[in-house]
Design a protein around this nucleic acid. Structure first.
Lengths: 179, 179
DNA sequence: TAGTTTGTTTAGTAAAAACTAAATAAACTA
DNA sequence: TAGTTTATTTAGTTTTTACTAAACAAACTA
């Protein structure tokens, strides 16, 4: 009965993380799986996760891999046991850095590059007569955007370079901003 | 012909922003509409946006409203003209603050609240005998998560409270983090 | 070897989201 | 008033995405 109670609370928590997950445009399953792992004192096998979440083996298999890519869970192998086991990363600052690092590979960078190409295209073009103002306007706008992205990219680069990031780090930033 | 060239470049740029948009889990249309407005020296009416993007009036009508909610575009009314006109916000730091502010209303906060409820549920419950360690483990885990969220929330609160935010602000943060 | 137990991939389905076309509403105009 | 011109809403379609069920593959076991 007390166990049931705990399970109920866990289930509510899982629902909450599912919603957060889909708020960020991710599948609910990711939130649910992470929640189950996060509240489990011991590593869980794929089939155990199936049992606790109700998703199929295939779904868990792929979901758990994307969670691992994000740095939110880690795969473990026990000796003499063919099963894989999964645990949740509980240091969220680590997760933030891991996700920010992931940006380099991603589709996102290809899109960013296309913005940069636009800027080059605009700059290398000889000024036209008829629509010179249009060209200049576009040039300035895209240059501003590029500068914003560069600035942001620097910030991310510095963050990912931090050997440690924790509450204290954030609080120092807050103190700086408050002035 | 030179005009055609400029249009081609604009179209590439628009494609780029569309991809960025969908990378963040948003409809491509949002990126496309913003791109068109961002590169337009003058405010555009709804029908002009329809012409430049190829989406239907209905789609533009709703998309432009969500863009406005995010602070990415602004609606303008010209006197003696019944049409609405739209311009892009070009200060991206403003946009960041605007989006961060929007968090208060959102579904996101309801989900966060449910995490907090979980914590309360766990803490108010009298310790059980059989599964005391399970309760404690869950309690600690959820408390840690809550503390992370609180910390982040403070940061966001400070950022939105900033009267101005710009490249310089970011650079100061970078300088702080580098030490 | 054949038989288990695991994880992954694939093909198909169900559900959700983005979008279109058209009806409606609202504000003006002649 | 009836007729235009605009924006919004609605109902339905298309497209995309998440997921299931089942086949497959790989690693072990008897």
């Amino acid at each position: 009965m007390s166990t049931t109670e705990l399970e109920t609370i866990k289930s509510n928590f899982t629902q909450g993380l599912s919603q957060i997950s889909q708020f960020w445009g991710l599948p609910k399953s990711l939130g649910a799986i992470f929640a189950v792992l996060y509240l489990s004192p011991n590593a869980l096998s794929l089939n155990e996760i199936v049992g606790k979440t109700g998703f199929t083996k295939g779904a868990i298999s792929t979901s758990v891999r994307t969670l691992a890519r994000m740095g939110l869970v880690h795969r473990q192998s026990k000796l003499g046991d063919r099963k894989d086991y999964y645990i949740a990363e509980s240091d969220f600052y680590k997760v933030v850095r891991s996700i920010l690092k992931g940006r380099e590979n991603s589709e996102f960078n290809r899109a960013l590059a296309s913005v940069q190409e636009t800027l080059v295209d605009l700059q290398t073009n000889p000024n036209q007569e008829g629509d010179a103002e249009d060209w200049d306007f576009a040039k300035n706008r895209v240059a501003e955007m590029q500068s914003f992205f560069d600035n942001l990219d620097n910030l991310v680069r510095v963050i990912t370079a931090l050997e440690t990031m924790n509450q204290n780090t954030v609080q120092k930033v807050i103190a700086l901003l408050k002035k």
